[in-house]
């Protein structure tokens, strides 16, 4: 991407103190939630968000974990509650209904080819949260302050524009 920096994988709470920005990628949100809690990373992230020193980009499961509200959550996920959004998990359906599609993102001149895997949808946004992209009125990309959430997987595409957007705007 021609941007200088080091990519590290965070697995411990100590790692959280050493990074400038965090990406929470796809995976199973319930599993990631448990690992965050058990490792102490949950508290470390919440603290840095409170101090306003940690920009975060969340994709798919990461988007779910950033949300203040999760539709139908019976306690299997403890989200970080950093963005004013309500998210519905697996909102397009099961893997059969997973898809790829070119989408338009606010501020991007060319379409972005996005991959949706058992993807969540952002049902509601409030406060200062801004919508960046939708499919059939379903919200799939949002931005609020130093946080970005996407219901698809930029990590599965060869197109680094969203990573660049995150890094250049926030870091």
């Amino acid at each position: 991407m021609n941007i200088n920096g080091t990519v590290v994988i965070v697995r411990h709470k100590e790692h959280i103190d050493k990074i400038d920005a965090l990406i929470i990628p796809g995976g199973e949100s319930s599993t990631i939630s448990k690992i965050l809690a058990k490792s102490g990373m949950y508290d470390a992230i919440v603290q840095r968000v409170k101090d306003n020193t940690l920009p975060i980009m969340g994709t798919c499961a990461g988007c779910v974990l950033l949300a203040k509200k999760i539709v139908g959550n019976k306690g299997e996920i403890t989200s970080l509650r950093v963005m004013d959004i309500e998210v519905e998990r697996n909102a397009f359906g099961r893997q059969k209904e997973s898809f790829e599609k070119s989408i338009e993102i606010k501020g991007f001149s060319k379409p972005y080819h996005a991959v949706f895997i058992r993807a969540p949808v952002i049902k509601k946004v409030w406060e200062t949260c801004k919508i960046l992209a939708t499919i059939d009125k379903k919200i799939i990309a949002v931005r609020q302050k130093r946080f970005l959430a996407f219901s698809f997987h930029p990590e599965l595409a060869d197109d680094f524009r969203l990573h660049r957007y995150f890094l250049e705007m926030f870091v």
Partner: peptide, 23 residues
């Protein structure tokens, strides 16, 4: 291209598997 929704492509199938990584 904006209107097409493609299901069951190799990318979508392999993408699902990738989301299981580390699990």
């Amino acid at each position: 291209d904006i209107t097409t929704l493609r299901h069951g492509t190799a990318l979508v199938k392999k993408g699902f598997a990738k989301m299981q990584k580390g699990g």
